[in-house]
């Protein structure tokens, strides 16, 4: 099955990257988080509630909503930070992309590891720009905010489509669908992936390396 893919193209100042990416990913994760399941039987459970928090951005005239979960917040922040530092570093050409990938595991027969099947990918492509004047910066602060508003509306639209999401699992298969490591929320299994333009485009050697790596990890 092919994964759904959504791509957002954004261009902004380096300092705005963290907040812009966080606003998109947190909105997505907010929709993809459920309350903690409390099983009363193998297939019967009750769901806890998810709280939400407003986050005001410093470098963009914008506010977004995220799940009230410190640990989830830290995970997202760490991933975005790593990406944005690399993107903004001196040896970067100023463009790159980061993606949030939802996947489910499929059990394989021993001794093979569980297979990860992505079912939804959200990608943010970024181009860094430089702003000379403070006036322009102020204007851009609002421009980025308007762009992000549109993206948020788009996310809500996508979320309300009747698209595929993994079925609610039984207790034994919960870990194949959900990430149960968070104490307060239960998001679908997700991971971050990023690349910046300084990392060379997929060449033969890189593809070979990747192939060998994957083979070894099997």
């Amino acid at each position: 099955m092919n994964a759904r893919s959504q791509v957002f193209d954004l261009s902004m100042e380096g300092r705005q990257v963290d907040e812009a990416v966080a606003s998109i990913f947190h909105t997505v994760l907010f929709h993809r988080c459920l309350g903690k399941f409390m099983y009363t039987g193998d297939a019967t459970y009750s769901i806890g509630t998810v709280g939400y928090t407003d986050v005001d951005c410093d470098f963009i005239d914008f506010t977004y909503v995220c799940c009230t979960s410190d640990s989830l917040h830290r995970t997202v922040k760490r991933a975005i930070n790593t990406f944005s530092e690399k993107l903004r570093s001196n040896d970067s050409s100023g463009s790159g992309q980061i993606s949030l990938e939802f996947f489910q595991r499929k059990k394989n027969r021993w001794p093979f590891q569980a297979e990860c099947i992505p079912w939804e990918v959200w990608t943010v492509r970024l181009d860094l720009i430089t702003i000379d004047s403070e006036d322009q910066r102020q204007i851009y602060r609002e421009t980025v905010s308007e762009v992000l508003s549109d993206k948020i509306f788009y996310i809500t639209e996508v979320m309300n489509r009747h698209d595929y999401v993994p079925k609610m699992p039984s207790q034994s298969e919960l870990d194949l669908i959900f990430d149960t490591s968070y104490p307060d929320v239960q998001p679908y299994l997700f991971k971050f992936d990023f690349s910046t333009s300084d990392t060379p485009a997929p060449s033969v050697s890189n593809t070979m390396k990747k192939l060998i790596k994957e083979t070894l990890s099997l």
């Binding site: 909105t27 907010f30 929709h31 459920l34 992000l148 509306f153 996310i155 309300n160």
Partner: peptide, 22 residues
């Protein structure tokens, strides 16, 4: 029930994105 939850979350997210919220 799940979809209703998603609708509510969308609503909450969307309310922050309008000019009136600012």
């Amino acid at each position: 029930y799940n979809r209703m939850g998603i609708l509510l979350k969308s609503l909450i997210s969307a309310t922050r994105a309008t000019p009136a919220y600012k």
